[in-house]
Design a binder for these strands. Structure first.
Length: 600
RNA sequence: GCGCCUGUAGCUCAGCGGAUAGAGCAACCGCCUUCUAAGCGGUGGGCCGUAGGUUCGAUUCCUAUCAGGCGCGCCA
């Protein structure tokens, strides 16, 4: 990528000037510096700040002038560096690089030739990365809160794969222990209602639908716990119905109501819910390579092996009849219990085993995408990584902030008790998967997200994500029109002389150059996302490319261009941009439509 | 009490220590006999929460402080 080339050129220049005695590098080596994208194009395509790192103004300007001179020379002498139009020194010592317009335009051919492979980087060098996200327990549907991780994880995974990492996307589900028993008991209660058996009082703990007839102002009162309050449209009611359909023999078990049957029924309910979750994920184009069962850790004995490994490494001790691990040795707030005094293993013990399992599968980096309520994980899991013999950096936890509901301008937390949980599949149905994905990805994962469902529905008309898709559709429209008149735009573009555009009006040329500048930025965006784990930059980038395309479309007709050379060259720009837009949309998990019908 | 996140335009938010802080939406004014107007051009709108500090340079880093959110189990 161009920025890397410039960095290399600058390093070469610094070394040459040092040899010549023109500059004095601290300890003989180049300082840290950046190749930046200036805010205004009048400051060039790129800006180098190394001179200010070496000295204060006005001395920095002198150094910048020397570097600038040498860079210009390099551009003339080395054919591979022949993209520099001019180099200028500005302000306190910025070295501003201006790229030749014809070089920029010519890159459209590079993009077209690369096709879907454009933007594929090798910064990952094939390193294996495991990204775990969503991992919602199969005791209820994914909602707009815990679903946020789905968009972050899936998009980050897509981008990291493009950046040359070998990515495995994974969902860890808890099909083990107490909560499955609870789910089973809740399900039995509903089954009894369905079968017309006396179900008794509704258990105080478990998984139940919000009663149908209760209004918001009643939420602080205890649930009615009567047959009348049962919501036959509720989710758990439907799960119970499906358990009965799937396994009619359950009816007999439910009549008995022995504790051990709860687990059996709970397992069936949980597998139904898991299928629902998988379907929701698929509807939103969120893909997983692996669904990992927590229970399997026990079956494979990894639960015990993980603990044993920690014990052998000397980090396990006993206290108060429980087994502990010394996570505090590695910066955690406190030590954590692995085996309770009653002999049960803790959830944390499963986390240890799961991390152990992931490392054993050969992953170099484990990324966890978790909600803010899992903040406490960071310290303990980083400690676990080290106790298992890996670096703290090999395990990264991305915390995304809470999603609240925006009700009448006030931020309201979703809760089961208030019955105001909005499920993700509901949102996807209302506004569509593409808009949903774009909407979520516009925000940094560190930012809080107040979800206004009404607005989200409205934004389906106004969402900038649609403008990006429209940009893609517009290009497809031109190509379609061209095909209708019997011409082959792709064929014409191949033989285009891009320099033909240099005779366009200044406004046209500016639009064409801006379009190519944006197109070529994709590699930098992918690199940054992969290195910093910040997938939200992709939406901003997509909007920038779309905006550049719309301006170009407005000013620079292709089909109607009088000059056939100009027409060909503009076809090349359109095809290159279509490639970029399609690629960007696909990384976002969105469709790149060839046609969009107006809403009205 | 301790820890983490957030505070930028009317709203929702971008902003990798750099130059005159940006986008979308909302508001206002223009542009369709033209490759889709889901678009383009223009206007207005900012003590970057507050106060110090580091730096040639701070919205960005550090400290304090105010405000909002979240977390601090032998729960999962």
């Amino acid at each position: 990528m161009l920025r890397d080339t410039l960095k290399q050129m600058t390093l070469t220049t610094l070394a040459a000037l040092q040899d010549r005695g023109d500059i004095d590098l601290p300890e003989g080596s180049a300082p840290e510096f950046d190749i930046e994208r200036p805010q205004h194009i009048k400051f060039g395509n790129f800006s180098i700040n190394v001179a200010m790192k070496l000295a204060r103004p006005p001395k920095s300007r002198e150094i910048a002038a020397k570097i600038s001179e040498h860079l210009t020379e390099l551009g003339h002498l080395v054919p591979a560096y022949d993209f520099i139009d001019k180099v200028e020194v500005a302000g306190p010592g910025f070295i501003n690089i201006y790229i030749k317009p014809e070089w920029l335009l010519q890159q459209s051919q590079t993009i077209i030739a690369a096709g879907d492979a454009f933007g594929a980087l090798n910064i990952g060098k094939g390193r294996r990365v495991n990204i775990e996200f969503v991992s919602a327990n199969p005791t209820g549907m994914v909602h707009i809160g815990n679903g946020r991780g789905g968009f972050i994880g899936d998009t980050l995974g897509n981008v990291m794969a493009a950046a040359g990492y070998s990515v495995t996307k994974e969902y860890y589900f808890n099909d083990y222990g107490q909560q499955i028993t609870l789910l089973g008991r809740s399900c039995v209660w509903y089954i009894k209602h369905i079968l017309g058996i006396d179900a008794g009082e509704r258990p105080s703990e478990g998984y139940f639908d919000h009663p149908a007839a209760v209004h918001e102002e009643d939420t602080n009162k205890p649930d009615p716990q009567t047959n009348a309050a049962i919501n036959t449209d509720g989710y758990y009611y439907s799960v119970a119905q499906r358990v009965l359909e799937m396994a009619p023999e359950v009816a007999d078990l439910a009549r008995n109501t022995e504790i051990e049957y709860f687990d059996i029924i709970g397992a069936k309910a949980s597998s139904i819910i898991m299928e629902d979750i998988k379907k929701t994920m698929l509807d939103l184009n969120i893909h997983f390579d692996v669904f990992f069962s927590q229970a399997s850790l026990d079956e494979t004995n990894e639960l015990q092996k993980g603990i044993e490994l920690l014990r052998n490494n000397g980090y396990v001790f006993e206290k108060d009849g429980a087994v502990w691990m010394e996570t505090s040795k590695f910066g955690d707030d406190k030590d954590r219990v692995l085996v309770k005094s009653n002999g049960d293993t803790t959830y944390v013990a499963s986390d240890v085993a799961y991390a152990y399992n992931k490392y054993n599968r050969g992953f170099d980096t484990l990324i966890y995408v978790l909600g803010a309520d899992h903040y406490g994980y960071i310290g303990r899991m980083k400690a676990v990584a080290q106790m298992l013999g890996h670096s703290a950096d090999s395990l990264e936890i991305l915390i995304y902030q809470q999603v609240n509901l925006d009700v009448g301008g006030k931020s309201v937390r979703m809760s089961k008790r208030a019955g105001n949980i909005v499920n993700l599949d509901e949102l996807a149905r209302e506004v569509g998967a593409d808009v949903t994905r774009f909407f979520y990805m516009m925000r940094d994962h560190n930012s809080h997200l107040d979800f206004n469902l009404e607005l989200a529905k409205k934004e389906s008309d106004e969402n900038p994500g649609l403008s990006v898709q429209y940009a893609h559709a517009r290009i497809a429209g031109v190509l379609r029109k061209s095909a209708e008149t019997g011409s082959d735009a792709a064929e014409e573009a191949k033989s285009a002389n891009m320099a033909a555009l240099l005779n366009d009006t200044p406004a046209q040329l500016e639009a064409e150059l801006e379009l190519m500048r944006e197109n070529l930025r994709m590699e930098e965006v992918i690199e940054r996302i992969a290195l910093l784990y910040e997938p939200h930059h992709l939406t901003k980038y997509a909007m920038d490319v779309a905006a550049a395309l719309h301006v170009f479309y407005d000013r620079c007709p292709a089909l109607r261009a009088e000059n056939p050379e100009v027409r060909k060259a503009r076809f090349a720009l359109l095809l290159a941009t279509k490639t970029i837009l399609a690629r960007t949309l696909n990384l976002l998990g969105m469709h790149a439509p060839d046609r969009m019908d107006r809403a009205e």
